[in-house]
Computed example of a mutant assay.
Amino acid sequence: MYLVTFRLDPGEYDAEFHELNDAIQAAAEAIDGYLGKRTWHDPDSEDVLVVYYWESLDALDEFGAHPDHERAKRRWTEWYDAYEVTVTEVLDAYGSGFGVDADPPQ
């Protein structure tokens, strides 16, 4: 499994952002190998972390090449003050579990 952590410093969102964001989420969900996502908001800094769960790098590459995702990557300065993406391979995961909040999200 692979985790893609998208950390962002939000700027101003407009209607076009929300339309594109919804289209990108729909594109991710349509890809075989997309396992879900979780979002966290830091109340102190206003940073947002979105962690996407992927079954394979092939699925992640397919998502990265999607036209809506490509368009959003070109226009990030319109909506974010800063961002970073980290791709991590999960080698092991363990713990007591979180029931319906288990990762990857169901």
Rank of each mutant, 00 (worst) to 15 (best):
V4W: 00
V4T: 09
T5R: 14
T5C: 13
F6M: 01
F6R: 01
F6N: 02
F6I: 01
F6C: 02
P10S: 10
G11S: 02
G11M: 01
Y13P: 09
D14T: 06
E16V: 09
D22M: 08
D22R: 12
Q25E: 15
A27Q: 03
I31W: 04
G36K: 01
G36T: 01
G36H: 01
K37E: 14
T39G: 07
H41N: 13
H41R: 14
S45W: 11
S45Q: 11
V50Q: 00
V50T: 06
W54I: 03
W54M: 00
L57V: 10
L60Y: 07
E62M: 09
E62R: 14
E62H: 08
G64A: 01
A65P: 03
P67E: 01
D68L: 03
R75W: 02
R75D: 13
E78K: 11
E78R: 12
W79H: 01
W79R: 00
W79N: 00
W79K: 00
W79M: 00
Y80I: 05
A82I: 07
E84R: 14
V85D: 02
T86V: 15
E89T: 08
E89I: 02
A93S: 15
G95N: 11
S96I: 11
G97P: 04
G97V: 05
F98I: 06
G99S: 07
G99L: 05
D103S: 13
P104V: 05
P105N: 03
